[in-house]
Every structure is written in C-alpha cells, then in structure tokens.
Simulated assay, not measured.
Amino acid sequence: MIIEELTMPEFVAGLEKTRTVLIPFGATEEHGPHLPLSTDTLHATEVGRKLAARRPIFIAPPIPYGVCRSTSCHPGTISIRTETLKALAFDIVSSLYGQGLRTFVLLTGHAGGTHLSALIDVGEELLVRFADCRIAVLTEYMLAAKEGRGLIETEGDSHAGEIETSRILHSHPQLVKGTAAREFPDFPAGILVRNKRRCWPGGVWGDPGKASAEKGARLEGLVVAALERLVDQLETMEDY
C-alpha cells in the first residue's frame, strides 16, 4: 500500500491488514558521471514497492535528502545536517504512530556512516518514546552486499560501482548515461579533508564496468526477499 496513492478510506482499510510501515530514506547525491543523483532514493523506493506487491505493508513517501559528507563537494549533492535528518525521522514516525502504525522499518538507500548513525540514534529515541512500537534501521546496501556476495565481482564495491549501476540498469535504464571508470577513494586515515573531490575525483567506489541489468534484477530480487524475512522477524519477535 503506497501511502501517497491511498485515499482516506483506503488507509483506514489498510490498518485492518497491517500496522507495519516501511519508510524509504534516500539522498540527492552524486553517483559518478553515469548514474542519477536520485540513485539512493530510487533503490529504497523500488524495493519498498516490490515488497508491497508481495505482502500487506504500508510504504511511506520517500525522503530524498540525506547526510552526505564524503560527496559534499561533488556537483549535484544536496546534504542536510544530522539534526535535520533526525528531526524528519522522528516527526514522520511519530505522525505515523499517531495514525495507528506500530512497526517501523527505516530503510535507507544512502549508506553513509554518519547518515546511518543518525537514523539509529533517532530509532533508539523512538523506542523509548513509544513503548509498544518495533523499529528496524538498515541500509539497502547491507542487504545487497550480503545477499549478492556470490554475484558481485568487485571486492569492496560500494558507491556508483558494480552493485548500484546494475540496480539502476535494471530498474531505471533510461537514467543511466553510459558507464564510468573503476575508482576507489583515497581519503587519508583519521584526517578530516576539506577538499573531498581531491581524494575522490570521479565519485565512484567500485567498478561500474562489471555491471549488467541481469545482475541488477537478481540483486533486487535477493534484496526484496531478505527485506521480507526481516519484516517477518520484526512483526513476530517477542519484546526485548
């Protein structure tokens, strides 16, 4: 059930089927010279829609902004503060709770460490605020890298590389503009860098040349199946 497409009566009827909602978090962030700035948002939204076709679950409207530090100097990246992300997540979950939802999956297509930590922090706050809610916070990349480890050829592949290029070639091929060179960032350990493009000029972390739409379709299917298993576990687990 895609929330923005529902009417009021349809939302009420949906509550009779489930009290679980998935909230897709994304980013507007560079993904090399070949992938759209919306890549992370597309990933999280697409698997949410596929999951909703398999089971009763609400899918909230995606949040297309995230905390993007490593790519903040690259053209097109629009980053928000951790405080902003936490406030958005807190307010959205609180509002959905007020509407009757009790199980929340905060799925982020953007896997930045600071971004994820902010979502985990607010998830912990929400567990304290609402004693009868269940919350999961995870990145879409966690599932893709784990479930697709037998498919992925590039060791350490991450941002705009083999995995993400394959996924967009499958789900939104019209948005892929060619390919890009294999690249890995070279940030100095422990040192904060002001000019981040100097250490990561192309904005690719992996090898887009090994991507394919077929691989993307298989990865997406694996991610959706893993996400469904997680929702099953979250909905049936005992309180602890």
Results as ranks from 00 to 15, higher is better:
Thr7Asn: 11
Pro9Thr: 12
Glu10Pro: 08
Phe11Met: 15
Phe11Pro: 09
Ala13Asn: 15
Gly14Leu: 14
Gly14Asn: 14
Leu15Ala: 12
Glu16Ile: 07
Arg19Trp: 09
Arg19Gly: 07
Arg19Phe: 08
Arg19Leu: 01
Thr20Phe: 09
Thr20Val: 07
Val21Ser: 08
Val21Gln: 12
Ile23Glu: 09
Ile23Tyr: 05
Ile23Arg: 06
Ile23Ala: 07
Pro24Gln: 06
Pro24Arg: 02
Phe25Asp: 09
Gly26His: 01
Gly26Leu: 03
Gly26Ile: 04
Thr28Met: 12
Thr28Arg: 09
Thr28Lys: 09
Glu29Thr: 14
Glu29Met: 13
His31Leu: 09
His31Glu: 11
His31Asn: 11
His31Gln: 10
Gly32His: 05
Pro33Cys: 07
Pro33Tyr: 07
Pro33Ile: 12
Pro33Glu: 02
Pro36Met: 00
Leu37Cys: 03
Ser38Pro: 03
Asp40Ala: 13
Asp40Leu: 14
Asp40Arg: 07
Thr41Ala: 10
Thr41His: 07
Thr41Leu: 11
Glu46Tyr: 10
Glu46Leu: 05
Val47Gly: 02
Gly48Tyr: 03
Arg49Leu: 08
Leu51Ala: 11
Leu51Pro: 04
Ala52Asp: 06
Ala52Ile: 00
Ala52Trp: 05
Ala53Gly: 01
Arg54Asn: 00
Arg54Ile: 00
Arg54Cys: 00
Arg55Tyr: 03
Pro56Leu: 07
Pro56Lys: 07
Phe58Thr: 04
Ile59Arg: 02
